[in-house]
């Protein structure tokens, strides 16, 4: 569901960049921005599909309220992309429907 880029971030001198991976593609993004801002600025359309109707969804509020920006980050499903800063080496995937507890469990182990 790759589409045109909705947002872009102008390059600025001296800006520290980090590398993140989304669905197998690698991007360089400014350090400190949120995962949601990073993905929206790199042409990613839907972040997830809704649990009830399987409809495509993407960030709406960007301030931690709407839970539309849920993505899987480093194996942990359903994390709020707008509340999570990017980190070098982060691996992000779309969140298809409800999170799986098994994935939650294995993701939790990888984290520590």
């Amino acid at each position: 569901m790759t589409t045109e880029t909705l947002f872009s971030i102008p390059a600025s001198a001296g800006q520290k960049m980090v590398r993140i991976e989304f669905e197998g593609e690698t991007f360089q993004v400014p350090e400190g921005i949120s995962v949601a801002a990073a993905l929206l600025s790199n042409g990613r359309g839907a972040f997830r599909t809704s649990i009830v109707g399987g409809a495509p969804r993407a960030p709406y509020c960007m301030m931690g309220i709407c839970f539309e920006c849920l993505v899987e980050i480093d194996g942990i499903p359903a994390r709020q992309g707008c509340m999570t800063p990017v980190r070098n080496g982060m691996i992000i995937r779309r969140q298809p429907g409800a999170p799986s507890l098994k994935a939650l469990a294995s993701g939790g182990r990888n984290e520590h």
């Binding site: 801002a37 600025s41 972040f47 509020c61 960007m62």
Partner: peptide, 25 residues
């Protein structure tokens, strides 16, 4: 209003403040 590509204007302003992200299209 639930479609990807629809956001609050405040949300977009948060992206501008927080990430210097501007609409590209």
């Amino acid at each position: 209003w639930t479609l990807p590509g629809v956001m609050g204007a405040g949300a977009a302003q948060i992206m501008l403040k927080g990430a210097d992200a501007r609409p590209s299209g």
